[in-house]
Amino acid sequence: MHLEYFHLIDRIAAIDPAARTIVVDAIVPRESTIFEGHFPGHPLMPGVLLIEAMAQTSGWLLIAILGFQRMPFLAAVKEAKMRTFVTPGEALRIDASVIHEGSGFAVTEAKIGVGGKTVCNATLTFRHAPFPNPDMRGHMEAMAKRIGFPEQAINHD
């Protein structure tokens, strides 16, 4: 994770576009300016960033399902539950699955686990649209390589 750059996942551990599932690994950094304010003397991974981590995980799954032709954008967060504290240095396993694919939108369920225990979960809605510009797509392709997105799932057309 690189919180200041919103890089909230480290590595795709497993992705199955046909089964509509993904598993991602991420380690909360031991130090970050964010922890200086959240909170002094009691550093915690902010809940909004946990939600963002679940959104990014879901987003990579949707990108794979959409053949790397469209970009998902988070539109709604429902039933988000922060079940326990997440602290610096903890290893997160993030699971997401698509529960509905509509026309131009999709709904996922995601959860984050630490040591096999669910620490938060949410239902997320995304709108998706063609990549708004080549720069963004290029950035996403570079990010895909960094996190182990399967090369064969990147459509270079």
């Binding site: 509509g102 026309s103 131009g104 939108f105």
Partner: peptide
């Protein structure tokens, strides 16, 4: 439009269809 996504989700599920929202739009 955001609320309509929730409605489309519920309609899709209730009727077993996929409302072609992008085409209509």
């Amino acid at each position: 439009s955001l609320d309509f996504l929730d409605i489309a989700f519920a309609i899709d599920k209730a009727f077993g269809i996929k409302l072609p929202l992008e085409k209509w739009t």
